[in-house]
Write a protein that binds this DNA or RNA. Structure first.
Length: 775
DNA sequence: ATCGCTCGGGTTTTT
DNA sequence: CCCGAGCGAT
C-alpha cells in the first residue's frame, strides 16, 4: 500500500486523516458523520472525483442526492473543477428531482402519462379545501391544515389510502371521514395526472416494488449512491435508498452474472436534524450501522469554518440535548472575537441594532453578501425590512413569499399546465374565469357535472359549451378559451425542435390572447401594475430557461419551477445582505451572522413545546444558526414583540443561558434592559433627558404604546425629494437631532449620513426616513 | 356575475 | 395584523 503515491494526488491535498479516510474508503456502505463546517462537501466531491479518475465508475453510474438544487449545482461545479468534463452525465440532484426524472421515464408503466403535473403544497391545500367543503367535513373538526398534514405524514410513511383503510377504526366517524377525504384526494390527483410533493418519492418506491424489472434498471445503473444531509431523510426517502441499493434481481437467467448491490455513502450530522416536522426520521442516521451491515463510520470533528468562541458556544448549547453521541467541534484557528449580544426594547429596536452593526461591519470592509440575518419565523421580517430600508442597507429575503407563490404567477402557470396536462382540472378551473370572462360558479358546476356524466375531462367539457344551453356570451367565452388552449397546444407540440416555438412563445401567446395581461394593465388597482410586471418577469424566466435548455419542453420548464427551493435563488455574487429563516440557513455559511429573536416562545417556538422532542429540535435549530458564522456572531432579542396588531412581553430564550457567559459581550443584556433606570440603550438616549418616562409618574393612566418613550417606531413616511446637504441640521423621530455629514446616491436612493447628537452616526434613506430639516 | 364591505379566525419551520 | 369567507348591493 503506497500511501505516498496516494497523498501526492492533488485530490487528496490538504485533507486531515479522517477526511482522507472518508475519501478513500471503498466498501458497500459508508457513513460520514460530519460536524458543521468540517469540510464534508470537499470530502464528498473528492470522493466522487476519485471514483471517476480511477475509472472505478463512469459518470452515469453515480447518483448524488442533495437537499436543495443549489447544493446540487454547487457539487457539480466542484466536481467539474476537479475532473473537468468527466463530470457530465452524473445524476446530481435532490430526491425530488431524481424521482421526477425516473417517474417521467416510467410513468406509462403504471397509468400516468409523462406530462404529469407536480402539485406544490398550495395546490394540495386548494384541492383538500374543495374536498372538505364537498364533504362538509368541517363539522367534524377537519381543517385544511390538519387534513393535509395527516395525509402528508401517511405518504411519508408509505401508507396509501387502501393500506390505511385496512386498519382504520370504522366505529369512529372521524376516521371514516378521514378515509373518505384521503380517498377523494388520491383519486383527484390520479385523475388529474398529478403528483404532490410526497408522491414524488412514495410513488417511485411503489413503482420499484411493483415492477422489479424497472427497479433492476436503476439498481444496475447506479453503482455509487451518495446522500447528503442524511439526518433529514424521511421514511419514504430511506425506503427509496434501500430499493436502489438492493442487489438487482436476475431477470434474464443465464445471460449475465448478477450484479452486486450499489455502494452507498451517506453524510450527515444528527445534531443538525431540523425537519422532523416534515417527517425526517433521525433514526435513519442513528441506526445506519445496524441497517447496513458492515458499514464503515468516519467522524469529522475538525471545523474549518468558525472561530473557537463560536464553536464553544455551539458545543455547549448542543450538549444540553441528552440522547446524543458526544461530539465536539474544534478549530486550530484561534478564539476570534467575542459573540455580541443585544436586547432591544422592541423588534424595531432590535432591528436598528442589526442595521447599525451591519453598517459598521460594512465600513470596516465586509461585503454585504458576507452578512446574513436569521430568524425563526417569517413574520419577523417585517420589522427588519422596515429598518433596513430606512437605514439604506441593501438586503434580499431568501425564501419567504416566493415569486412562484404569487397569485398572478400561479395564474400564468395554470395556463401553461392546462396546455401541458389537460387532465389537470385544478389548473383548468383556475383559469376558467381568470381574467374575468363572466363564467361564474354556476357555469363552472354545470361544466363539471357535464364532464362527469359524459365521462370526459373537465377540459374537454369546454368543447361542448354549445350543448349546455348557456347564454351566447358565456358560450362564446368558453369556446374562445378552449380554442386558445388548442392553439397553444399546437405551438407547444412543435417543441422543442422548432425554432421560434419555445416555452416563451407559448406563454406569451396565452397571456396576451386570453387578455390576462391587458386586464392587469387596465386595472385601476395600483398593485396590478406590479402584478403585470411579475408576469412579464415570468416570461423572462422562460426565456432564460430556453437559453439554458434549448431542447427543453414545456413539462421540463414546469418541473424546474415546481422544484425550486427557497435557497436556490440565493445569489452569492449579489451585493446584498441575506435575510432568511433558520431552516433555510442550513448548509450555508457567512462571515457575520445575526441571529435574531432569541426569545422564549419564538426560539424555542411556542408551537414546539407540546411536541415530543420539540424543544430538542429547536435547540438544534439554534445550533445550526450559530454554526453558520465564520468570524462574527450577533445574538439579539427584544423585550416586547408585536404580533397580530398588539404587543406582548418577551422573555430571553432558555438557550442563551447555555452559552458560557464569558463568551458574550452584551451591549445591552436582558438584565440591563429590565432594570428600570439601568444602562440606557443607544436608541433610547435621544429624548430621555429631563423626562422620567411613564414609570416615574405615580398613578399614571396606562399608556402601553408610550411605555418606551423613545422606542424605534415603525412609521415610514415619504419625504418626496427633500433636499439635504452636508451641514444641514435635521430632526429624526427616533434618534433626535443631528447634523448631515454627507449625501450619496441618486434619486429615490439618496442616502444621508447623519451624525446624531446622542444616537451616534447613521445612514438613512432620505426618501423614507422619519426626518425633517430644522433651523 | 361582480364588487366591496365586515367579520372572524389563525398565527412555525418547507422539499 | 392579514387573510379569506360570506353577504348585500349593483
Amino acid at each position: 500500500m503506497s500511501t505516498t503515491v496516494e497523498t501526492s494526488s492533488p485530490l487528496l491535498e490538504g485533507l486531515n486523516p479522517q477526511q482522507l479516510e472518508a475519501v478513500l474508503y471503498r466498501g458497500p456502505a459508508l457513513l460520514i458523520v460530519a460536524g458543521a463546517g468540517s469540510g464534508k462537501t470537499s470530502v464528498l466531491t473528492r470522493r466522487i472525483a476519485g471514483l471517476l479518475e480511477s475509472r472505478e465508475a463512469w459518470p452515469s453510474q453515480i447518483l448524488a442526492i442533495t437537499f436543495t438544487n443549489k447544493a446540487a449545482s454547487e457539487m457539480r461545479d466542484r466536481v467539474t473543477r476537479l475532473v473537468g468534463r468527466a463530470a457530465e452525465g452524473m445524476w446530481i440532484s435532490t430526491f425530488h428531482s431524481a424521482c421526477v426524472r425516473i417517474l417521467r421515464r416510467e410513468a406509462e408503466q403504471f397509468g400516468y402519462s409523462k406530462n404529469f403535473t407536480i402539485y406544490d403544497s398550495g395546490d394540495s391545500r386548494a384541492l383538500i379545501k374543495r374536498i372538505l367543503k364537498d364533504l362538509e367535513a368541517d363539522v367534524l373538526g377537519f381543517t385544511v391544515s390538519t387534513a393535509s398534514a395527516k395525509i402528508s405524514k401517511l405518504k411519508n410513511e408509505l401508507t396509501d389510502v387502501e393500506t390505511y383503510a385496512r386498519q382504520a377504526n370504522f366505529q369512529d366517524p372521524n376516521e371514516v371521514m378521514f378515509v373518505e377525504i384521503f380517498r377523494r384526494y388520491s383519486r383527484a390527483l390520479s385523475s388529474a395526472n398529478a403528483f404532490d410533493f410526497d408522491d414524488l418519492i412514495a410513488q417511485t418506491v411503489y413503482l420499484f416494488r411493483a415492477f422489479p424489472h424497472v427497479a433492476a434498471l436503476y439498481q444496475k445503473r447506479f453503482r455509487h449512491i451518495l446522500v447528503d444531509e442524511y439526518q433529514d431523510t424521511n421514511h419514504a426517502q430511506y425506503a427509496l435508498i434501500r430499493e436502489l441499493t438492493k442487489e438487482p434481481a436476475e431477470l434474464e437467467p443465464g445471460l449475465l452474472a448478477a450484479t452486486e448491490a450499489a455502494s452507498l455513502t451517506v453524510v450527515g450530522d444528527s445534531d443538525q436534524s431540523i425537519y422532523a416536522f416534515r417527517g425526517a426520521d433521525i433514526r435513519n442516521i442513528v441506526e445506519f450501522e445496524r441497517d447496513f451491515a458492515g458499514a464503515k463510520v468516519v467522524l469529522l470533528e475538525q471545523n474549518y469554518r468558525s472561530t473557537q468562541n463560536i464553536l464553544t458556544a455551539a458545543n455547549s448549547v448542543i450538549s444540553n440535548n441528552f440522547d446524543r453521541k458526544d461530539k465536539k467541534l474544534w478549530t486550530a484557528d484561534g478564539d476570534g472575537e467575542k459573540i455580541v449580544g443585544y436586547t432591544g426594547y422592541s423588534g424595531h429596536d432590535e432591528a436598528q441594532f442589526v442595521a447599525d452593526e451591519i453598517a459598521t461591519l460594512h465600513e470596516k470592509g465586509m461585503a454585504y453578501h458576507d452578512i446574513a440575518v436569521f430568524y425563526r419565523t417569517n413574520s419577523q421580517t417585517r420589522a427588519l425590512e422596515e429598518i433596513l430600508i430606512r437605514s439604506a442597507v441593501p438586503y434580499k429575503i431568501v425564501g419567504g413569499t416566493k415569486f412562484y407563490e404569487r397569485a398572478e404567477i400561479k395564474d400564468a402557470m395554470a395556463y401553461l399546465i392546462a396546455v401541458a396536462n389537460p387532465a389537470d382540472t385544478l389548473a383548468v378551473r383556475r383559469i376558467l374565469n381568470t381574467p374575468k370572462r363572466g363564467i361564474g360558479p354556476a357555469t363552472e358546476t354545470l361544466l363539471a357535472t357535464y364532464a362527469e356524466k359524459q365521462e370526459i375531462t373537465f377540459r374537454d367539457s369546454l368543447r361542448h359549451a354549445a350543448e349546455l344551453g348557456l347564454g351566447p356570451k358565456v358560450t362564446a367565452a368558453i369556446t374562445a378559451l378552449s380554442d386558445l388552449l388548442d392553439e397553444a397546444t399546437a405551438v407547444a407540440a412543435r417543441l422543442p425542435t422548432a425554432p421560434g416555438d419555445g416555452v416563451p412563445e407559448v406563454l406569451s401567446l396565452l397571456i396576451a390572447q386570453s387578455g390576462y395581461l391587458d386586464a392587469l394593465r387596465a386595472s385601476r388597482d395600483p398593485q396590478d401594475e406590479a402584478r403585470a410586471e411579475n408576469v412579464e418577469e415570468l416570461v423572462a424566466v422562460t426565456k432564460e430557461f430556453q437559453r439554458n435548455n434549448p431542447e427543453g419542453a414545456l413539462v421540463d420548464f414546469l418541473t424546474e419551477v415546481s422544484l425550486v427551493a427557497a435557497v436556490d435563488d440565493l445569489d452569492d455574487s449579489s451585493g446584498t445582505v441575506s435575510l432568511m429563516t433558520l431552516h433555510t440557513a442550513k448548509g450555508l455559511e457567512f462571515e457575520a451572522v445575526f441571529l435574531t429573536g432569541v426569545e422564549e416562545d419564538l426560539l424555542p417556538h411556542r408551537m414546539s413545546a407540546g411536541e415530543p422532542g420539540g424543544p430538542a429540535e429547536e435547540r438544534r435549530l439554534f445550533y445550526v444558526g450559530i454554526t453558520r458564522a465564520r468570524k462574527r456572531l450577533f445574538l439579539s432579542l427584544a423585550m416586547t414583540r408585536a404580533q397580530y396588531g398588539d404587543v406582548s412581553v418577551a422573555m430571553p430564550s432558555r438557550y442563551l443561558q447555555e452559552i458560557p457567559a464569558e463568551l458574550i459581550d452584551w451591549r445591552q443584556s436582558p438584565g440591563m434592559a429590565t432594570s428600570r433606570g439601568g444602562t440606557q440603550p443607544r436608541a433610547l438616549n435621544a429624548r430621555r433627558d429631563g423626562y422620567g418616562g411613564a414609570y416615574s409618574v405615580p398613578n399614571a393612566p396606562p399608556k402601553p404604546k408610550t411605555e418606551w418613550a423613545n422606542r424605534v417606531t415603525n412609521q415610514v413616511r415619504d419625504n418626496g425629494d427633500l433636499m439635504l446637504q452636508a451641514g444641514d441640521r435635521i430632526r429624526h423621530t427616533d434618534f433626535g437631532d443631528g447634523r448631515v455629514s454627507g449625501v450619496t446616491g441618486e434619486g429615490p436612493k439618496r442616502i444621508a449620513e447623519v451624525q446624531f447628537d446622542t444616537a451616534g452616526r447613521k445612514r438613512l434613506l432620505i426618501k423614507v426616513a422619519p426626518i425633517e430639516k430644522i433651523g
